[in-house]
C-alpha cells in the first residue's frame, strides 16, 4: 500500500522546514496519521487552505518509510468557513480537534470517532451551541468505553439526588459515601441527558450558570482521563 486515499479531518498542523507543514489527520479508514504537505505555506501552494485545522477533506497519501506519509492530493469535502467566523467557534472547534488528537492512537481507525468529530464540527459551523464541547467530551469518553457515571454512586451503587462528582473516580458519590466536587441537580440532569439520548435538548440550552458548570465539570473529567490540561481551553479563557 504505497499510495492510498481516505476521507479525513485535519486535527492540527505544524511547520516543517522552510515552506512545508506536517498535518495530523484523522482518517475514517486509516485512523490518525501524520503526513508532510510540501510547500503548503507558500501563497501559491496547490493545497491552499484545504489543509487548515477543522477542514474535512479527501486526501491521497503516499506511505512513507518512517512515521510520516506524504500528502499528494487534497479535495475539499467541507471547508467549514464559519469555523473561523468568530472567537467562540474557533475556540470550540479547536477544543474538539485537540481532544480527539489526544484520544486517538496512531493508525487505529475507529469510524465512529471520525463520524462524531465530523458531526460536532458541523454543529459548531452551523449554530455553535455553548454546551457542544462539554457534550462532545462526555460522548467521546462514552464511545471510548470510559463513560462517566452520573446515576449510581461509584462506591456503593446507591442512587441519590444529593451527590458530589469524584473526577478521579469517574463518577458521582452519594451523600453517605461523600466526597467529590459539588454538582447541582440541574447540571447533573444535563450530564445525564447528554449520555441518555437527550443531546438535542441539551444543545438548545442557552449560555448560563448551568451550562458553565457542566462545561467546567466535563473539561475536568476529560482532563483527568487524559492526564493533562487542554491547551485550547486555557486559551479560550483568555480570549
Amino acid at each position: 500500500m504505497s499510495l492510498y486515499r481516505d476521507d479525513a479531518v485535519v486535527l492540527r498542523t505544524y511547520k516543517l522546514g522552510e515552506a512545508d507543514r506536517v498535518v495530523v489527520l484523522l482518517g475514517r479508514a486509516t485512523g490518525k496519521v501524520r503526513a508532510v504537505a510540501k510547500g503548503v505555506r507558500r501563497t501559491r501552494s496547490k493545497f491552499g487552505s484545504r489543509l487548515e485545522p477543522g477542514s474535512q477533506v479527501q486526501v491521497q497519501l503516499h506511505e512513507g518509510r518512517g512515521e510520516l506519509d506524504l500528502v499528494t492530493q487534497v479535495e475539499t469535502i467541507e471547508a467549514r468557513p464559519n469555523l473561523r467566523a468568530d472567537m467562540s467557534r474557533v475556540a470550540h472547534a479547536a477544543a474538539l480537534l485537540e481532544v480527539v488528537d489526544l484520544v486517538a492512537p496512531d493508525r487505529e481507525p475507529v469510524a465512529r470517532r471520525y463520524d462524531m468529530l465530523v458531526g460536532a464540527l458541523g454543529v459548531v459551523e452551523e449554530r455553535d451551541p455553548p454546551l457542544l464541547p462539554a457534550a462532545f467530551y462526555l460522548k467521546l469518553l462514552a464511545a471510548e468505553g470510559v463513560a462517566p457515571e452520573f446515576r449510581e454512586c461509584v462506591v456503593c451503587a446507591a442512587v441519590d439526588t444529593e451527590v458530589g462528582f469524584a473526577v478521579e473516580a469517574g463518577g458521582v458519590r452519594c451523600r453517605s459515601c461523600g466526597g467529590g466536587r459539588s454538582i447541582s441537580d440541574e447540571a447533573l440532569a444535563v450530564c445525564r441527558a447528554v449520555l441518555g439520548g437527550g443531546l438535542s435538548v441539551v444543545l438548545d440550552l442557552p449560555d448560563g450558570d448551568v451550562t458553565r458548570e457542566v462545561d467546567s465539570l466535563a473539561t475536568a473529567i476529560v482532563e483527568a482521563h487524559l492526564e493533562r490540561r487542554l491547551r485550547s481551553v486555557r486559551v479560550l479563557h483568555t480570549t
Partner: peptide, 11 residues
Amino acid sequence: AIDHLQGVGPE
C-alpha cells in the same frame, strides 16, 4: 499568533 492548539494566548 493566538494558537488554541498550541496553547498560545493573547497574553
